[in-house]
Design a protein around this nucleic acid. Structure first.
Lengths: 231, 231
DNA sequence: ACTATAACTGACAAGATTGTAAATAGCGGC
DNA sequence: GCCGCTATTTACAATCTTGTCAGTTATAGT
């Protein structure tokens, strides 16, 4: 029977270029993958979301597993680029570690990048190009270390950066519940305050003049409200 | 045909008490759940691991989902208990935050608790009794805050504890790769050093006399040496 | 021993999910 | 306007996975 035998209008089969189709599929797949994880991704659901049939997905990616791999690689690449940009723009201009950190916090949390990365770690997919990542980390560590005024060891700087990464990561994945349990239930502003508190702690440890007051004043969204007189 | 028609001896069907069976199943399920996640848990694989048939599992838990729930609840309960013990024993005796923190680091990492918790967060199971957890957190925060000598705000203490939790969590889930990328590839001792470094940082921030030197002295062997330094 | 209970098994049902094959139909090129 | 390419679809196959059911058999209680 012809496609439009029924009542309403069966949208007349849109035809994308291979590239467009791949991109749309990748985007949708990444979204669901972030939300429910790689194991729970179903070709049919994904196809339904896009309004196409599931063999169309297979046509472009061959296999479910290849699709997941493609999604992961794309996401990791994009994350690396975004991070690099953040560090370049925040690092070159002023020695403002706080703004940098807040940006990273923001980005990982908002786009759910951290969730994705967490899933990669948990499912054991080593799609992260460790070699490339190491170069990026080295650049960051060098930059931070060069700015230190206290004569701390390089390992101290390394650990500081690692701590930042871990805290950022953890905050993005489990920050909500953790703050909740710590007594900030319902405090919508707590994550932002925590981020600033942490940035200040880091700055202090790195020997920078408690940079919080001097650097953080640009109107980021409108998340954080009261400037807290520490102590 | 009778069960032992074949050649070798089909082990003559062991019969456990319901409790034993439940326990064995729960233990095995928790292991695989930690390793591959809740979505990837297959009843048949699980049963095969235990040398039983998969309906036996269903007999004891009714449903796959109920099994997963039971595993999760058990694990969370045990985690809470272990944490509470750690805090009690480390907290009552001496004001030594370092030993406490190291214990937590150790435990979460060694038993893979953190992986499990991470999976809970990611898969969105709110099996964690938030109410109970909040009580535990409050106790911890109060204990830490009471010991502070600097007159820092309570929120500062809250954030400090949250940071500890996040870092611990992150370290357990992604610590290996992170340290690797940060330049510690192959350095088997790095995680332990990082833990000590972080503990020292925390102690310093909390105003305690940099307790690292006084408390941590055990000769740490390899990666997972349980260096519970004395008090 | 004997019996009752329930832990356990094998076989099967029902449904979901990935992947295949052939047919259909947009769209660019001529 | 016609044609070829291929994105897309429908129909189907094959496999896997949970769950059911009736029957078996350890084990405890008597």
């Amino acid at each position: 029977m012809t496609a439009k035998s029924g009542a309403s209008r069966a949208a007349p089969r849109r035809r994308r270029t291979a590239e467009e189709a791949r991109e749309e599929i990748l985007a949708a797949a990444e979204r669901t993958l972030r939300e429910i994880g790689p194991d729970a991704l179903r070709l049919q659901d994904l196809a339904a979301d896009l309004g196409i049939s599931h063999p169309a997905v297979l046509h472009h990616f061959g296999t479910r597993e290849e699709l997941v791999t493609a999604v992961v690689e794309r996401a990791v690449r994009r994350l690396e680029n975004t991070l690099l940009d953040a560090f370049r723009s925040a690092g070159d201009g002023a020695p403002d570690g706080n703004a940098m950190l807040e940006r990273v916090f923001d980005m990982l949390g908002r786009d759910g990048h951290a969730r994705l990365i967490a899933w990669l770690f948990l499912t054991g997919r080593d799609a992260i190009d460790v070699k490339t990542a190491r170069v990026g980390w080295r650049a960051i560590i060098d930059a931070v270390h060069a700015r230190r005024t206290d004569g701390a060891s390089r390992e101290d700087t390394q650990f500081t950066v690692v701590l930042s990464a871990l805290a950022t990561f953890g905050q993005a994945v489990a920050g909500g519940p953790m703050l909740d349990m710590a007594g900030f239930a319902g405090d919508h502003d707590a994550p932002a305050r925590f981020a600033r508190w942490f940035a200040t702690l880091l700055a202090s440890h790195l020997g920078q003049p408690t940079a919080a007051e001097t650097s953080v004043r640009g109107g980021r969204k409108r998340s954080r409200s009261r400037a807290r007189g520490a102590t």
